[in-house]
Nucleic acid binder design. Structure first.
Lengths: 328, 328
DNA sequence: TCAAGGCGCTAATACGAATTATCACGCCGA
DNA sequence: TCGGCGTGATAATTCGTATTAGCGCCTTGA
């Protein structure tokens, strides 16, 4: 249309104006006019092929991205991720095509789409160790939402400081006068659980008090029996929903929370449950985590030296109504 | 590594085995082994450039995809879309990079990423007419979630049949004995509003009863006054939250819903609101709509002749507690 | 007088895969 | 000996863009 070469169009299109490249203003105008007339837009795919990056951030979750039944625990993370992506002018690629093998999605498989994105945000309570190691080994730019132990190398992450937050909750409980505390949950396995338990143990050790660990495989009723028998007056629950179930059973028995038993929630519910009782404890800064995850990722991509690639954000204390001094 | 050419690797990788191409089983094995050893994966972008498709479906919303404050109205659509995409082995590209101009996101702009995806799902109460027309004119494969009027050509969509659903609600209201009904909402503008109003009008016309249209720009208190003055006994509300507000004002006045005033909800809340009162009316089959939208889109992409590209799904009636016969 | 550099643009190439026309080879029959 | 044929693999081209070395002419300064 304008009688210029493809290269010139490319230069005009990209507004190249630095010293090394010059386009006569008159030519530039002609080209711009033709672009406007035709509504021409460069093919993003070809563009990406040449440029080797494409302003796409991958989002990989080990559970469905839009959880139907998990009480939207992941939703706030995604809100944060989306907000950051929008601000940065990036698109998000939800890696939904990853096939499910042995009950979980796998990043690596024979038609792995990871390289579609410049980098990747990983979401999920527990990430597969092997896959994490491979990501590190192969040098894929990625960030985990949630702290992760090293996997053959440091793992970039934006996590919540469960250890400190849990220790704080324990201290508040001790300050209220409790001396017999129990921890209800796995306390091990995923980093988020281990970290909570570490905070619990540390705070009680510092106070010279014994720890007590209750597994989650019993019925709430049996659990309550065990707690009462042991004289426990305050329980820290790893999973919010377990606290709700415990409170419900206590109510059935004619006990009141927190007068007879204090219950402290170590985070937000990951399973759907009622929220009419506002538990004392802390909240996970989920949106902020998603937000910073994208920040860390783009920092990695730009190879910005100043960016901290392992971040722990403080949790937000919640006063709530489930902590009172023990009866005796 | 194997001493074969790039072409051979490509052929092996894609399992080409038709008559026109032959690979010696021994060679194929060698190549497959090397692929396994190195963990090689074809670059999806280059692949797309050559093959002209890449199993990526774009998702464009005129509001944030992960709504922070809009009460998650869009969430169920996305759940459906994700489920379909996963089943089909497609990835989803959230077009978050689209810049916001004049208060809304635009699909078309100078660095339009639409073509990164094979096709696109459009989400939003009202889509921009011009952009819709351009999508049709330029032949982009896309589907709208929600019925749309023609835009220079038929628009592929998966919508909810608001007209029929609203007419049904009106009939149920008439069957309960009401004769003075009002419609609260815009009743025009977006297709979803116009369709509801059309159903409302049709059902009342058929019954030989007058229609009454209340705009939404007044305070709930003023609105209630107007309704009572006019002797209205049942109100159909376009927007759930408006119904909640109306019920709240009624309660303040000492009136009871539905004894003194029946309120019928024409769909799910799009604004955050309380849901402790279960409104009579209908629900939008959002998940199913997302599900079928992907189906229509892939039908378009595969140019399958049998696929209906305009679908209206029935809404689900809700019995609820806000409809009773009028007092007099 | 001549080398150096400015000028505006383009030819050529790279990016990484998919596809196709073609080739070398060995074998068989005439 | 030669042509034809089935095999198995490859060289070359394509997709649409970004990038860069250099084109030939002219000006400048030493």
């Amino acid at each position: 249309m304008t009688g210029v070469s493809q290269a010139t169009v490319s230069l005009v299109l990209n507004g190249r104006d630095d010293g090394s490249v010059r386009i006569a203003p008159e030519t530039r105008e002609r080209v711009l006019l033709a672009i406007r007339d035709t509504g021409y837009v460069a093919d993003p795919v070809a563009r990406r092929l040449a440029a080797r990056h494409n302003r796409i951030l991958g989002v990989f979750t080990y559970e469905p991205v839009f959880p139907a039944g998990t009480g939207d625990f992941y939703h706030p993370f995604l809100v944060g991720i989306e907000e950051s992506a929008e601000r940065l002018g990036c698109d998000l690629l939800l890696l939904t095509s990853a096939p499910v093998t042995d009950g979980r999605r796998r990043i690596f498989h024979d038609d792995n789409r990871l390289r579609l994105a410049d980098g990747c945000v990983l979401l999920g309570r527990s990430l597969d160790r092997d896959e994490l190691g491979r990501l590190v080994a192969e040098g894929h730019p990625f960030v985990s939402v949630g702290r992760r132990d090293d996997a053959g190398g440091p793992v970039p992450y934006v996590g919540a400081d469960y250890t400190t937050a849990t220790a704080d909750v324990v201290r508040r409980t001790l300050d209220a006068g409790h001396t017999r505390l129990a921890y209800l949950g796995q306390g091990a396995g995923p980093e988020s659980h281990a970290d909570r338990f570490a905070g619990y143990r540390t705070a009680l050790d510092a106070a010279g008090l014994p720890t007590r660990h209750e597994p989650t495989d019993r019925s709430p009723a049996d659990l309550l029996d065990a707690l009462l028998t042991a004289g426990v007056t305050a329980v820290m629950v790893e999973e919010y929903a377990d606290g709700v179930a415990l409170a419900a059973v206590a109510a059935e028995r004619g006990l009141t929370v927190p007068a007879d038993l204090s219950i402290l929630a170590l985070g937000d519910p990951t399973r759907p449950t009622t929220r009419d009782l506002e538990f004392t404890g802390f909240r996970i800064p989920r949106r902020e985590m998603g937000w910073q995850a994208v920040e860390v990722l783009t920092g990695l991509l730009a190879a910005m030296p100043g960016t901290a690639t392992q971040r722990l954000l403080p949790c937000q204390p919640v006063d709530g109504v489930t902590l009172l001094p023990p009866r005796h």
